[in-house]
Structure formats: structure tokens, C-alpha cells
């Protein structure tokens, strides 16, 4: 592992304009990913995981605005790059797998051609080699009968197959940084294992750094090196995967774990996290955005959040951690 991370997100804040006011979706988000490392981004729905990914990729919705921060990647700040330079890096160095695979594929182009297009565009293969390379990619993501299935249109494939096509496209050019937004939600666990192993191989062989957005904490613990927990646009805890599972420090991380169905014997044993995310349009958002739901709240909690270092690789933003 190198000293300089592949990607360092610092102080990232993003707002959205909506009809009913400004929504402060990300607030001073920071984390880093080393070369060859896979970092999971977890947290409730709406906590800002996808928006973080979009901001780094430079593809925020037009209503969104980056109000502070940097995303350092290979010496450059991605947030400061021109649209053209960024487009250049996207696809070659940076690759993203979107949360909604079917809409990200071109519906009227055969999937084999779509993979070939990407390979040719980014110099991964010549026009004449590309069709064979596309078959090879389908094989790697375990699509049966790849020679024939390259001829399929997206609507002829299952949801999980489209997801695997997107993964194949994203990995085709061996990116230096992969952002995968819930890439395996539509996959059964045996196919998921194949994909996770594939990502692991690329990380190992070519030092690909991966941001892996997921709701599945057991998956994150098994396949990711570190876990970054987000809540309402804040990073609340970051730790090595196993450590976070064994000893969560932020009250929210602990609640997330308690809501995960693992060995539990009945639904009654699982507890949802009481309350919801605060309304992010509020002008008077509390310093700790979890405080409205927290059982461990103390007087200090109204002060700006601390950045507590449990150990070198484990940090938590909380005044009264577990």
C-alpha cells in the first residue's frame, strides 16, 4: 500500500436547489482510498452515497452545486478540472457502475457492441479485436453462452445480467479508480461472489482503487478493506471492515449493524433505526445530524463535531462514542 492515496476526498459539500428550498445534501465529507484498496460506503438511503459518487465523477444533476472541497486523484483536483479534461479521464482512469443498470445501457444497441465501443474508445482493443474481447468480458462476469448473448439487446437480458454488462463495461479498460454504486444488488450470492472476486483480482493485479457503495454490511465486511459510514451527508465513522463489525464506535453504526439480518432467528429481533434523517432544508441543522435520533446524546453534542481518532485507521465523529 502506497503512502499517497489513489483518491482523497476532502471537505466536500454539495447543495441542491429544489422548489422548496436549498437541500444541504453533503456537509464536509472526507475519506480516502488507497491504491488496490476497496472501501465500502454504507449508510441509510438518502445519506448521500450516490451524490458523493456523482460529485467525484463530475456528473451531478444541474440543480446540484459543489460548495466546498476537493477530490484529489493522481495529483489533480477532479472538482476543479474542466468538463473536457474530466470527460477524458472518465472511462479511462475513472469508471462508474450506476445504481440503475438498465437505464444506463443503450436500449437499441446490442450489448456486445456496447462493450466493444467502450474498449475501442479508450484504447482497450482495436476494432477487429473488440468483438472477441467483448465475449471474453461476458464470460468473466459469468453470462451463460457468451458467444450468442453478445447479440442480445438489454431488454432481452435479466436485471442482473444488465448489471453484469455494466460491470463488464466499467472494468473493460482497467480503470485506476472504480466507483461501484450498489453493483451487486440484483445478483444472487454465487454470482455476486464471482463479481467481488473479479473486482478483487483487478485491485490486486492493476492496483485499482474501488469505492463500493452498498447496503449489505456483511458483504462489505467480507470483501472490502475499510468501511466508511455516512449519515445525512456526514461521514460519521471510518474503520477497517472487521473492526467496524466487531467494535462500532458511532451510535449510528451500531444501529445499522443491529438492523442487519444475519443469524437472527425472527423478524421481531431486528430493530429499525428510530426516527428518520433530518430535513436537510432546515437552516438550523444541528451540528450532529444524528442527535435527534440518538440515545447517547450529551450536552457537548451541540458543539461542532469532533474528529476522534480511535487508532490510525479508525476515526469517529461523535462526542460520546461507544
Amino acid at each position: 500500500m502506497t503512502a499517497v492515496p489513489a483518491l482523497a476526498v476532502e471537505d466536500l459539500s454539495v447543495e441542491f436547489r429544489t422548489r422548496s428550498g436549498i437541500v444541504k445534501v453533503l456537509d464536509h465529507v472526507g475519506f480516502s482510498v488507497d491504491k488496490g484498496e476497496t472501501v465500502a460506503l454504507v449508510g441509510e438511503s438518502g445519506s448521500g452515497k450516490s451524490v458523493t459518487a456523482f460529485a467525484v465523477m463530475g456528473i451531478l444533476d444541474p440543480a446540484g452545486k459543489v460548495t466546498s472541497g476537493r477530490a484529489l486523484f493522481g495529483g489533480a483536483d477532479l472538482l476543479a478540472l474542466s468538463e473536457r479534461d474530466l470527460a477524458e479521464q472518465r472511462g479511462r482512469e475513472l469508471s462508474m457502475i450506476f445504481q440503475n443498470p438498465r437505464t444506463a445501457l443503450n436500449p437499441i444497441r446490442k450489448v456486445g457492441q456496447q462493450i466493444a465501443d467502450v474498449l475501442v474508445r479508450h484504447g482497450g482493443a482495436t476494432r477487429s479485436d473488440a468483438p472477441r474481447a467483448a465475449v471474453e468480458m461476458l464470460k468473466r462476469v459469468r453470462i451463460p453462452d457468451p458467444e450468442r448473448r453478445v447479440e442480445a439487446y438489454p431488454f432481452e437480458l435479466s436485471g442482473g445480467m444488465c448489471q453484469r454488462i455494466m460491470i463488464a463495461i466499467a472494468l473493460a479498460c482497467r480503470p485506476a479508480l472504480l466507483i461501484a454504486d450498489e453493483p451487486t444488488t440484483g445478483l444472487d450470492v454465487t454470482t455476486q461472489a464471482v463479481i467481488m472476486d473479479l473486482i478483487g483480482e483487478l485491485a490486486h493485479e492493476s492496483g485499482m482503487a474501488t469505492i463500493f457503495i452498498t447496503h449489505d454490511l456483511a458483504l462489505a465486511a467480507e470483501y472490502c478493506d475499510r468501511i466508511v459510514v455516512m449519515h445525512a451527508g456526514h461521514v460519521v465513522e471510518a474503520a477497517p471492515a472487521r473492526e467496524l463489525f466487531a467494535h462500532p464506535r458511532h451510535p449510528y453504526s451500531a444501529k445499522l449493524l443491529a438492523a442487519t439480518p444475519g443469524e437472527t432467528v425472527s423478524l421481531a429481533e431486528l430493530a429499525s433505526i428510530p426516527g428518520g434523517l433530518p430535513d436537510l432544508r432546515r437552516p438550523d441543522l444541528p451540528a450532529c445530524r444524528y442527535s435527534g435520533r440518538c440515545e447517547r446524546r450529551i450536552d457537548d453534542c451541540t458543539k461542532p463535531l469532533p474528529h476522534r481518532v480511535v487508532d490510525e485507521r479508525h476515526v469517529v465523529s461523535c462526542w460520546n462514542p461507544l
Binding site: T185, G186, H215, L256, A259
Partner: peptide
């Protein structure tokens, strides 16, 4: 058809209990 795939674990619990 995979109703909880996009849900976080907390909402998933709410939905599963609702279904029950």
C-alpha cells in the same frame, strides 16, 4: 420482485415488518 434490494437495512426492517 427484489423489493428490498435498494433499501437500506433500517427501512428494510420497516418494510418486512409491514409485509408481515
Amino acid at each position: 420482485d427484489e423489493p428490498t434490494a435498494a433499501l437500506d437495512v433500517s427501512v428494510q426492517v420497516v418494510i418486512l415488518k409491514l409485509l408481515q
